[in-house]
Every structure is written in C-alpha cells, then in structure tokens.
C-alpha cells in the first residue's frame, strides 16, 4: 500500500486551473522529487496534498481518503514546510520548532515533557542545538530554512512535504539537510515529497521524479527517465547536457550558447 497517492488532482486558483489531473503514488520510505519551471504548479501540488487548498480528485494517505481525516489526524500523518514560511521575528527557535507538536496537544492544552524532548532532539540533529533561545528575526536565511525543517520534523509525521527545503542553504548545509532527510526516510520509513530547483540534487536524492509543466505532469519515473536533455530542453527552455554520474544517477550541466 502506498503511503501517499493522488488521482486526478486538479486545483483552480482565481478561476484558473493551475493543476490539472495530476496523479502520483509514493510508497512508504520513498522520495518523490517534483521538478518544473517557475509557476509550473509545484508548490500548488504540495499545498493541495497537505490539504491547504480545495482540490478535485482523490488523495489517499495510507490508503485512507484524506478528506475523511480530521485536521489533527491529518497533521499527525503529514508535515508541510512551505517555500516561503512566515517567521514571527520575536519567536525563539525552540518555540517555533515546538509548534510542530501542535497536533498532539489539545485545543487549550500545553506542551508536555515529551514535546520538549522531541523538539530538543530534532534541533540537536539539525545542528541547531545552540540556537534554541535565538529569535527568528536574528537568523540567516539558511538557519531559518533549517528551523522550518525542524518544525516539520518535530511533527513526527510519516509523510514530509517539503517545498524547496534547500534554496537558501550553502553547499554544506544543502547536503546536510538532504542527507538528514534521506537518513530519516530510510531509518523511519518516512515518505518524502519535495520540490527542488536544483535538478542535480533532485536527481541524486529522489528515487522517483515528476516533471510538472503548466500544471500537467508531463513526465514521471526514475531520475534517468525524467532528467533527459529533451524534457529539460522542452519544459525549462534550457540547453543542457545530461551524463551519467559515477553513481549512475544523471547529472545535468548547462551548455553555454555559441558566441
């Protein structure tokens, strides 16, 4: 049984269809990377999967129709990290990450010991242990991004929806974050659906990819099937060369035009 699947997913925003009839299926422990040019509908797809947008079609989480889950139940199954998160500047890193425990706390309740321990553990793993008392407004772009990831991880959901989790990170932290997500999904059989602008990174970590263009899923399959010179040329309008890397995964290089 797949951890997350969607059939015929369509979303209209402002009476314009920005996602049309998209289907996907990711098994437990799988990593699906959604790629596509700006405005293709990647973020819209993740938001629809997270239940933040009204959509047509069917979404199944662990075989259960998502529409039938209560908000809190759904939040325990799926965590979502947005592309441009709102970070209250005066909130501390620890308190922000602690918000991930919300689905486990009753409406007027308060966090318990476990919630704090889980949060502390996640911060430690993300190299943020020393940042707990810092205010969000005083963080660098990359630190912020890791904090948002920490918030999603404290949610301890089986499915992670990560919208551009690495855009502001330096090389080392890009690798660190993606490696961590990778380890988590292998160790805890987490299911990851991410969007990534860096096609090489996307191809390296994902075991399945989907190319969105104009709201349609124009290609999906293994990285080798999706990262082809023709598909990238057609849908990104980029001239690239794709070669197999040392690990057999495709590597995408930009080709400079003739001068």
């Amino acid at each position: 049984m797949s951890a997350l699947s969607a059939k015929g997913l369509s979303v209209a925003l402002d009476e314009r269809e920005v996602l049309s009839d998209v289907g996907l299926e990711v098994g437990a422990g799988g990593w699906l990377s959604v790629i596509g040019p700006n405005g293709a509908g990647k973020s819209t797809l993740l938001r629809a999967l997270a239940g933040l947008l009204g959509s047509r079609g069917e979404i199944l989480v662990d075989g259960v129709p998502a529409a039938r889950l209560k908000p809190r139940e759904r939040a325990r199954l799926m965590a979502y990290a947005p592309q441009t998160p709102a970070l209250p500047p005066d909130m501390t890193v620890f308190d922000y990450a602690l918000l991930g425990r919300t689905p486990y706390i009753s409406y007027l309740g308060r966090e318990g010991r476990t919630d704090r321990d889980v949060t502390a553990g996640v911060l430690e793993r993300l190299d943020l242990g020393a940042f707990g008392a810092r205010r969000l407004g005083h963080l660098s772009g990359g630190e912020r991004q890791r904090v948002v990831l920490a918030r999603a991880l404290t949610q301890q959901a089986r499915v992670l929806l990560l919208d551009e989790p690495t855009t502001a990170l330096d090389l080392g932290h890009q690798q660190q974050v993606l490696e961590l997500v990778d380890r988590l999904r292998l160790a805890d059989r987490l299911t990851v659906i991410s969007t990534l602008h860096d096609l090489n990174l996307a191809g390296q970590y994902a075991d399945a990819m989907m190319l969105l263009a104009g709201g349609h899923a124009v290609a999906s399959g293994s990285p080798v099937q999706v990262l082809t010179e023709e598909l990238i040329g057609t849908h990104f309008g980029a001239s690239v060369k794709v070669q197999a890397g040392p690990d057999g995964r495709p590597q995408v290089q930009l080709v400079r035009g003739e001068r």
Binding site: A50, R72, Y96, G100
Partner: peptide
C-alpha cells in the same frame, strides 16, 4: 502562537 506562523502552516498543524 500557532496562528502567528501563517494560515497555511497553522492548518497543516491541524
């Protein structure tokens, strides 16, 4: 406090 991180995230937190 939960609302302060934005509607999308608040909803995604249940």
């Amino acid at each position: 406090d939960v609302l302060s991180v934005g509607d999308d995230e608040a909803v995604s937190l249940g």
